[in-house]
Design a binder for these strands. Structure first.
Length: 502
RNA sequence: GGUCCGUUCGUCUAGGGGUUAGGACACGUCCCUUUCACGGAUGAAACACGGGUUCGAUUCCCGUACGGACUACCA
């Protein structure tokens, strides 16, 4: 029975897609590609109160940016359209009715207020209220009331929900791809709402119905769903359907302390938890995105893939294609993974160094002639984590220094250094081939003739020209500044330095 | 509180009844570079605890501790 693999990523459009959700999408994508299956995007928008405009497009854009776009679903259509649950509303009712007819579900008329009261009552007695086999007989539902009463309520348009009648006794078990056997007694489960009073299905119903109709073979989702997996299994059983294979992914944890990674951690830590920048349509609050921070898609994917999975080899850098090749559900970890921004940066650096020089040049130094821009990229690429830092460095590089590294001045500025700089300043105009090697020659010869050691002067020369005690190769820097600029900067320094002595 | 899940260096993790417990990030030192960065080398750094099972347990089992998720007419 080798069914064709069909997996889905099923986010709710309630805000920006969380990075943990992106990892879930990635694992689904990898598994689909690995097995020659189909990756489906379904939008679970059954909660009308939490709908956020733009969120769905944000999900699409994010997946597209990362290159893990779905084969089927919202944004790309397919044989099971529509893929937006709000547009499938009518469908769910008939399945709920089926369970109703078979006595596996029932009407419940309890209002939210009544249920809140029950919860408060139970809590005051030190226990937790559950709508289950024990309590449902005393509540307002079609199991506890006479048929005539129920009909009357229904006829008078009294709001109701449909609840699943969970058996009082029994055990639900399933074999999770990540956690192996999981079993739960039905006595600890409650009669979950299947249809809400607004006529919309809850997540549980819609999810199970759609996964079945869309022929989903593997449900790969976050661990937060593990507690409701037995309920879903029970639903499959109630319908007489075969349940898909489940794989519950470990959570992404906050970098410090404990708990699920949240937006707050991002603000605190100064790193993004969203794939792309998000502007809250209500408040206008801007949340950082991996994309805008300068993370490359491949680096983001590689980093995310390793949070909860590893190939079992010592290779760490994987292209998307290599990830597909190496991926397997069996190698997913059980324990939650802390989000470590240092590791993310390291991955980015690795990918940045492999990036196309011309592309980086055009993207980050658009105002410069391509040849110059490329030279700058070469000069700075090894010292940056994010591409936009290149532009920043070039900007600083191009500006004449106004402050000079004090520590270096204190240590190295002396008569010999001064003489060295003067000699260099005197000889540089005579340098005929203004490129790194030629400049070096000129300086070497000039200093040798004056009997001055290079080591005594070079760092001071660097400070004189750039202001900094450290930086990229000085000769190449001088070449890029240009002869006149270098000479002018040198003279400027020579006139300022003596005044800096105190 | 209840249910479920988890626990190897600070972090991501490999491993698995007998290993010097491996790699990567971060950190230290050294080399390269008269600088810095990159790169290379190297160091420090871990099997939560207690019982079993076993000739032998970090690995298997059971407890305990700790952590987490869930506990809505949210997903």
């Amino acid at each position: 029975m080798s069914q064709k693999v069909r997996v889905r990523f099923a986010p709710s459009p309630t805000g920006p897609l969380h990075i943990g959700g992106v990892r879930t999408a990635l694992y689904n994508y990898l598994f689909a590609r690995k097995t020659g299956g189909t990756f489906i995007l379904r939008i679970e928008d059954t909660d009308q109160t939490r709908f956020v405009p733009g969120a769905e497009q944000y999900i699409l854009d994010s997946l597209a940016w990362l290159g893990i776009s779905p084969d089927e679903g919202v944004g790309s259509d397919g044989p099971h359209a529509p893929y937006r649950q709000s547009e499938r509303k009518a469908l769910y009712k008939q399945y709920a009715d089926q369970l109703l007819k078979e006595g596996k579900a029932y009407y419940a008329f309890d209002s939210s207020e009544e249920l809140d009261e029950m919860r408060a009552l139970f809590e005051s007695k030190g226990s937790a209220f559950q709508y289950n086999a024990l309590t449902r007989v005393k509540l307002r539902n079609s199991l506890a009331m006479s048929p005539a009463e129920v009909d009357a309520l229904l006829a008078s348009d009294t709001p109701y929900v449909i609840r699943l009648k969970v058996p009082a006794k029994g055990e639900i078990r399933f074999q999770d791809s990540v956690r192996d056997w999981v079993h739960v007694h039905t006595s600890s489960m409650d009669d979950k709402v299947l249809m809400k009073s607004d006529g919309m299905p809850t997540y549980h119903l819609a999810n199970v119905v759609d996964d079945h109709i869309m022929e989903i073979t593997h449900v790969i989702r976050g661990e937060e769903w593990l507690p409701s997996a037995p309920l879903h299994i029970l639903l499959y059983q109630s319908f007489g359907w075969q349940a898909p294979q489940f794989a519950h992914l470990p959570l992404l944890l906050k970098p410090e302390g404990n708990g699920k990674l949240s937006k707050r951690d991002a603000d605190l830590g100064g790193f993004p938890v969203f794939p792309m920048e998000w502007v809250d349509p209500q408040t206008g609050t801007v949340s950082k995105g991996f994309k805008q921070e300068g993370y490359l898609p491949a680096a983001t994917l590689n980093f995310l893939a390793f949070l909860g999975w590893n190939p079992g080899t010592e290779q760490e850098l994987f292209s998307l294609a290599e990830l597909v090749d190496a991926f397997s559900l069996e190698r997913i970890n059980k324990a939650g993974a802390k989000f470590d921004v240092n590791k993310a940066k390291w991955f980015n650096q690795q990918y940045l160094k492999q990036a196309d020089i011309a592309e980086l040049a055009q993207a980050n130094l658009p105002s410069l002639p391509l040849k110059d821009a490329e030279a700058f990229v070469h000069l700075f690429l090894d010292r940056v984590t994010f591409p936009q830092e290149i532009g920043q460095l070039v900007h600083e590089f191009s500006n004449r220094p106004s402050v000079f590294d004090e520590a270096v001045m204190a240590n190295k500025w002396n008569l010999e250094a001064k003489n060295g700089l003067e000699v260099i300043a005197a000889q540089l105009p005579a340098c005929t081939s203004w490129e790194a090697e030629g400049i070096k020659q000129t300086i070497q010869v000039a200093l040798e003739e004056s009997g001055i050691k290079m080591g005594k002067v070079m760092q001071i020369l660097r400070v004189a020209l750039s202001g900094n005690g450290a930086g990229p190769d000085l000769m190449i820097s001088m070449q890029l500044w240009g002869k006149e600029e270098v000479i002018e900067r040198l003279h400027a320094a020579l006139s300022v330095f003596p005044k800096l002595e105190s």
